[in-house]
Write a protein that binds this DNA or RNA. Structure first.
Length: 419
DNA sequence: TCTGGGGTCCTAGGACCC
DNA sequence: TCTGGGGTCCTAGGACCC
């Protein structure tokens, strides 16, 4: 079993990461923002977090995921801008178009980053560095946006090196140099190592990736299980375990669809809460229909004032796409689990366990569901024309208990859209 | 500091079946 | 009576990512 677990040739993976994506897109629409401290995600007093901050704002310690109110204190002169998901999606599609001309094996990992498998494209695009510079220039020419490109023999190396290349740079880690490149970096730089894992590692005296690489692999496995083993591989630059191990461009279908809403003011008003559940159920149902998914499991998410959060799920025998069925389930879960009178901060509805198309419903049931689907499709078209609030399961009810909360337009930063 | 919204993956316990 | 071992499904929670 001795010899080669080595691949016969090394892969060449690119990771393309757009620089301060949301901020840069906003600058395209309003050039006066250029060079200023800009925070995208909402207004300075909103209950929300920073989606993106300009490099100017970052100098004051502002970073994404930070509460907007904190950002406003750290950087009072910053300009606060609401997010525009449609703009980001549109630019993201242009990015996808550009990278698609470089390799057949491409994959958008999120709205603003992509992987390309460039193995074997030398005859077409030249050596990695040259190809990367061409890509970098073409990206700027066709999207007017800056990006950074990391090149390596694994997704992990490509990802970490694109981060090191920022802003607006290209970095190639030559095959064989992976471990040496990673060694001086903080363990937190490894994708998948967050706050909690970082703390655990620090307690073991592990600060840098080099420390991690020297650590006994079996002890990592004993302490952290499967993940510990993967971690040992990552310290060497390997795509060990999980999503990283998959081929670039492999077809990934969505596993869940969800919508949630945080109130600007916590509420214990049953009518308002159930009106929100209707709206969220409709949004989830609509997306199920768009993707032609049927969901077997519906989950309620409930967050109280003090941030304690529960989730309660239920699976039905026959999968569904229907707003009414989703809402009935979720309302049932809500009534059973909400501690009456305790103010609620957030409600969420999630659908999962998908099938594409139902298998064995009898004919009557099928026609009944078809009628519903037709009606709902008509409603979807109406919404496209007149906006989200024009049609609803209970638009009358909603009309009288319209929420005062505003939609956070910065909301959308999802990883994947189901096809 | 007072914490969005949309996702993925992992773990762990209990039910249920063979 | 008192007790096994494995597999799969379901549910709840949590870490992590952008």
């Amino acid at each position: 079993m001795a010899a080669s677990c080595q691949p016969t040739y090394a892969r060449t993976i690119f990771h393309v990461d757009m620089d301060a994506f949301f901020v840069s897109v906003e600058e395209l629409f309003d050039p006066s923002l250029k060079g200023k401290a800009v925070v995208v995600g909402g207004q300075r007093n909103d209950r929300g977090v920073v989606s993106a901050a300009s490099y100017e704002a970052r100098k004051f310690g502002v970073h994404s995921a930070m509460p907007l109110r904190t950002a406003a204190k750290m950087c009072p002169h910053a300009l606060f801008v609401d997010g525009h998901p449609e703009r980001y999606r549109e630019c993201s599609e242009r990015v996808y178009h550009v990278i698609g001309t470089f390799s057949p094996q491409v994959e958008m990992a999120s709205i603003d980053e992509a992987y390309l498998d460039m193995t074997g494209t030398e005859r077409l695009h030249g050596p990695p560095l040259k190809a990367a510079h061409t890509l970098h220039e073409r990206m700027k020419a066709e999207t007017r946006l800056n990006c950074s490109v990391g090149i390596g023999t694994s997704r992990l190396i490509a990802k970490v090196s694109s981060a090191q290349a920022k802003p607006n740079g290209v970095l190639w880690i030559v095959p064989g140099e992976e471990a040496r490149f990673l060694a001086p970096l903080e363990v937190r730089e490894i994708p998948g190592v967050g706050k909690v894992m970082e703390k655990h590692l620090h307690e073991l005296g592990i600060q840098k990736v080099g420390d991690l690489a020297r650590f006994e692999e079996s002890e990592l496995e004993d302490r952290f299980g499967k993940w510990g083993l993967a971690l040992a591989g990552k310290a060497r630059g390997e795509d060990a375990g999980g999503w990283f191990d998959s081929e670039v461009g492999a077809d990934i279908t969505a596993k869940s669809i969800s919508h949630e809403h945080t109130y600007n003011d916590d509420t214990a008003d049953v009518l308002q809460l159930e009106a929100t559940l209707i709206r969220l159920s409709e949004m989830v149902g609509r997306r199920l229909r768009e993707s032609n998914f049927y969901a077997r499991t519906i989950q309620l998410k409930l967050r109280y004032k003090d941030f304690t959060t529960i989730t309660r799920a239920h699976s039905f025998p026959v999968p569904t796409q229907l707003d009414t069925e989703i809402f009935e389930q979720v309302r049932g879960l809500f009534r059973k689990n909400w501690k009456k009178g305790i103010p609620v901060r957030l409600l969420g509805v999630q659908a999962s366990s998908f099938t594409t198309g139902t298998n064995q419903i009898d004919l009557l049931e099928a026609t009944r569901q078809q009628r519903w689907k037709d009606a709902l499709a008509a409603a979807d078209r109406l919404r496209d024309k007149f906006g989200e609030s024009s049609v609803g399961l209970a638009s009358g009810l909603r009309g009288s208990f319209r929420e005062r909360t505003h939609e956070n337009p910065a909301g959308l930063r999802g990883r994947k859209k189901p096809k």
